[in-house]
Design a protein around this nucleic acid. Sequence first.
RNA 1: GCGCUCGUAGCUCAGCUGGAUAGAGCAUCGGCCUUCGAAGCCGAGGGUCGGGGGUUCGAAUCCCUCCGAGCGCGCCA
Length: 579
Amino acid sequence: MTTVLEAYQREFAEALAKALNVTLADVERQLKPADPQHADFTFPTFALAKTLKEAPLAIAARVASQLEAPSFDIAAAGGYVNARIKAMPFTGHVLDAARAQGLGYGGSDSGRGKTVVIDYSSPNIAKPIAYHHIRSTAIGHALANLYRASGYQVEGINYLGDWGKQFGLVAVGFQEWGDPARKHEVSHLVEVYQKANKRADGDKKANLAPDVAFDESARAFFRRMELGDPQALAFWEEVRRVSIDDFKKVYQRLGIAFEHYEGESRYQGKMESVIAQITAKPGTKESDGALIVDMPYDDNEPPVLLKKTDGSTLYATRDITAAVDRFERFHFARALYVVATDQSLHFRQVFKVLDLMGKEWAKTLTHVNFGRVHGMSTRQGNLKLLREVLDEASARALEKVNENIAEGRMQTDNPKLLAEQIGIGGIVFNDLKNPRTTDYTFRWEDILNFEGHSGPYLQYAHARTLSILTKGGGAPKQCDAALLTLPEEQALVRSVAKLPKVVADAIEHNEPSLLARHLLELAAEFSRYFTAGNQDRTKRILLDEEGPLRAARLGLTDAVRLSLANGLRWLGLATPERM
RNA sequence: GCGCUCGUAGCUCAGCUGGAUAGAGCAUCGGCCUUCGAAGCCGAGGGUCGGGGGUUCGAAUCCCUCCGAGCGCGCCA
């Protein structure tokens, strides 16, 4: 599926190759999008100057005069050959593509017949969902949407930390401080867990020494779980169910539905056969009483531990087993692990082991890493819960909504729902707008700032497109794109045209921020266009008199609306009709 | 100590497979609502792109080095 923009770029590239008598590949290596004030595409000739033994300026001038590319206005500037796309038929092609594909515009069929497994969110049971869980959750969700929009079968897995000593801590903690009547309240379980954890590990700040006996009883409880003790497992199952039900409340607010809820417990009893495979190839050996993978290690690289001295397994063992299991189930073309950068070494090693095991699909595994959220832990009571942040965002948006209602600027049947959509949009977008690997610091005032280029800014632009379309009697079936000659209109057409390429890039790099940034550009251009109409009535979309120009502008507005709506949805933001 | 990542405007960050005067948002200051919705738009000030060296026609971008920060480095996940 070739996009409109790609087709135009190709025309320019082929004309250049012909005029210069070089290969298409040579041209495409240098050809790039230009600064909009100069052109749409530009070709720097400097690299060719040597081989052609001709000055860049001379090459550019010569080529510009010879080029046969009827869709473009060509000009030489400095050593560059600049190509600006002629408004027609380009504008018509872009509007037709966007409006014909509608809610699919921007997507493609590039993933048809392929499956992608995405491991994301993956909280630990019996621990609180802190704000920073938004990272894996939002990034993974956006990627799942983008892959789906590109034709992939998506298997989203919420890989819960549902097995381990923490259940022993909850259990013995519950015996100590638990209120049986509050057994179904996650907040109570978390409270108990945190207290128990502190008692077992000690707490320097509270001057509390580790309680070894307490810790041992927690370990004993977990051992009972591993041995299949029905009572212990019943308690575990109960806690697990209560936790998942609670998680789902947050996921529902974020509009997320996982294909699979599973966890580390799935691999109990399944690891021995994988360890046997590793032992066969590439090999295992004993080291200080533990079982490690026998493979070449870099200097100072720690070994991959499969079993502790006491014979129990580790998370590398589980992740290797899980990868094998996932491939057997899904035969994926790609598998993504949306997990923080902290664990880069772990995944490098896991992937390496799988590769050495002879799994040819190991090269399709990708650690989609992301940066940390600073400033939200350590000091007691300083942990920001995700739910608190969502609540706060929703409340803040509600103030603004009520204000707008009071001033008669908007009406809505459901202010609370609208505020929820806007508030959560702000939070999610804030997390997606920068490249994944960037760290950021938690600050209420930043995270809840919905002014400027934020999620609500995009939602607002989208709502305005709808408002105009509604007032204008809906999008026209047909329109004459040749009438869209204003610079503001041509800028918008180009932004709309870029969307499919942006989505493809976002998938290629597993980077939702590419889409986030493009939507800001598109929304900003629309806002400018809109405001221009307030200052100059001839630039209005809804011109006083009906006619072909008004229809054309409504058609463009419709294409913008579709682009914004699709992009917002894929990023995981709601698209309220009014705000 | 070893490895990975990063140092760009007062703050938070884009730009980094080298290309035309380094861009946004926030904050500050100044304009634009008898409304196609001001959660918006326009403008101003503000940067030796951490320091130094190198490669190149050209470096925020690549290489080296120094300074500074974060993360990781066998029986937690």
